[in-house]
Design a protein around this nucleic acid. Structure first.
Length: 425
RNA sequence: GGAGAGGUGCGAGAGCGGACGAAUCGGGCGGUCUUGAAAACCGCAGUCCUUCACGGGACCGUGGGUUCGAAUCCCACCCUCUCCGCCA
């Protein structure tokens, strides 16, 4: 969330740096509400000050055993009433201002390419080569059904579209990937493993930026006012909500493998078949809290940690810098890692690594105390490390054999009980 | 779900109608001492809002109420802990 003072002082600069991202914002209204609020505040504070003085006078007289001064008592009563009335006036203005501030997206970092959609994204690098399959590869849906490791039809019967039942070696593969990634990130990359809540309250969702703007993307449990997490980013980032961290404890690095729940509102007809876009999917997520001056180094590190996963699995991928128009609401800079999907012959997002700078920290009130004793907002970052369902797709499609079996990458075999191939039972 | 206890600053923890923005300890920052460090000692220091500034104001889980006056009393709600019930 933005500091209204910054907008007050350099609103024009922010507007121009936001570019298209800020075009829905009513900047004039924002400043007007700000002025209004400050006028209210100043007025009320003057009255409160006067009230304090009168009150201490009354206290003094009481102590000296003197009779009540009705004039003073009357003044205090009058002030109390006025203050109450003024406060009632401030509240709606404050709420409106706050709501507007919460709807302003983050400012893109200066190194972010500007552009309105994904066609303006910039490819940074590619790793590996596409597999050369001497036969025409089957899509993961057919492959999964013929191997009897994925069942979309029965899942739809109980839960509707965008749900899947994993069976046998399919379930094992999913679980193996989660365990493999968690082990890699905890043992080799220095992240602390977390199992967070999957249900989060409104304040938590507001902290990371899902609310108030994207409520329709979330599954919501009305009875208890809970939301299902769309990513572990939400619960893991909120671990330190309303805390002042010790600078010497930074960076804090966490990893969590959790299910994620997304309503996918507005994506009807998009990726309807298969594992690509599900209402429920597993993801291993990396989250970092850093000192402000270290956060872009941390973003690079995060990206390397993510790439390591794909390299060990032998999956062809590329890294893309998202342009301003393709970035998420809360991000200042985002790299997407896209894995090669042989059947469609395209790269598909399998990880998204972002630096949020102070955007989430402001919303969630996450600060640190520096060596000078002063407090400031931390920078938060996160990246998928990586999305499990899409990794399953990439593995099935990349390592399939002409006979319909699928080879298991070496790195994964220990997690599959030594299995090196998935075959028809 | 029932009964009880509690939620105070970076952390621990006192305060239980006015002089309390809050004792004390720990941690932090600055200094003295030391070749350096530790220890010891001295000093500084909550967070936020508002003001060009001086200053002013708010904040002791949240929201109401009582009172001239509330961290302190009352009510509701939220959260935590203990016991019971239920359950994995």
């Amino acid at each position: 969330m933005f500091d209204i003072r910054v907008i007050r002082e350099s609103g024009d600069e922010i507007q121009s740096r936001l570019g298209d991202r800020g075009k829905e914002i009513d900047w004039k209204l924002l400043l007007q509400l700000d002025t209004e609020r400050r006028d209210f505040v100043t007025r009320v504070e003057k009255k409160r000050h006067r009230r304090k003085i009168v009150l201490s006078e009354i206290g003094k007289l009481k102590h000296q055993g003197k009779p009540d001064n009705t004039e003073l008592l009357q003044e205090v009563e009058k002030l109390a009433n006025e203050i109450k009335a003024d406060e009632a006036l401030i509240k709606p203005t404050e709420d409106r201002l706050n709501d507007l501030l919460l709807r302003i997206p983050n400012i893109p970092h200066t190194t972010v390419p500007s552009g309105k959609d994904e066609s303006y994204n910039e490819e940074c690098r590619r790793w590996g080569t596409p597999p050369h399959l001497a036969f025409s590869p089957l899509p993961h849906v057919e492959l999964g059904e013929s191997l009897d490791i994925l069942d979309f039809k029965r899942a739809a019967r109980m839960s509707g579209s965008r749900f899947t039942i994993y069976k046998g070696a399919g379930a094992r593969l999913e679980r193996a990937l989660i365990n493999y990634m968690l082990d890699l990130h905890t043992q080799n990359h220095g992240y602390l493993e977390i199992i967070p809540p999957y249900l989060v309250n409104r304040a938590g969702m507001t902290g990371t930026g899902q609310l108030p703007k994207f409520e329709s993307d979330l599954f919501y449990i009305e009875r208890d006012d809970f939301f299902l997490i769309p990513t572990a980013e939400v619960s893991v980032t909120n671990i330190h909500r309303e805390e002042i961290l010790d600078s010497s404890d930074l960076p804090l690095r966490y990893v969590a493998g959790t299910p994620c729940f997304r309503r996918e509102a507005g994506s009807y007809g998009k990726d309807t078949r298969g594992l690509i876009r599900q209402h429920q999917f597993n993801k291993v997520e990396l989250v970092s809290f850093t000192n402000p001056e270290k956060s872009y180094d941390e973003l690079d590190r995060l990206l390397v940690n993510v790439e390591t996963v794909l390299q060990h699995l032998g999956l062809h991928y590329r890294v893309v810098t998202l342009c301003s128009g393709d970035m998420g609401f809360s991000a200042a800079k985002t790299y997407d890692v896209e894995v090669w999907m042989p059947v469609q012959g395209v790269f598909r997002e399998i990880s998204s690594c972002s630096n949020f700078e102070t955007f989430q920290a402001r919303r969630a009130q996450i600060k640190f105390r520096g060596s000078d004793g002063k407090t400031d907002f931390v920078h938060t970052l996160n990246g998928s490390g990586v999305a499990i369902g899409r990794t399953v797709v990439a593995i099935l499609e990349t390592f399939q054999q002409e006979d319909g079996s699928v080879l298991i990458p070496k790195a994964l075999q220990p997690y599959m009980g030594g299995m090196d191939k998935i075959e028809k039972r």
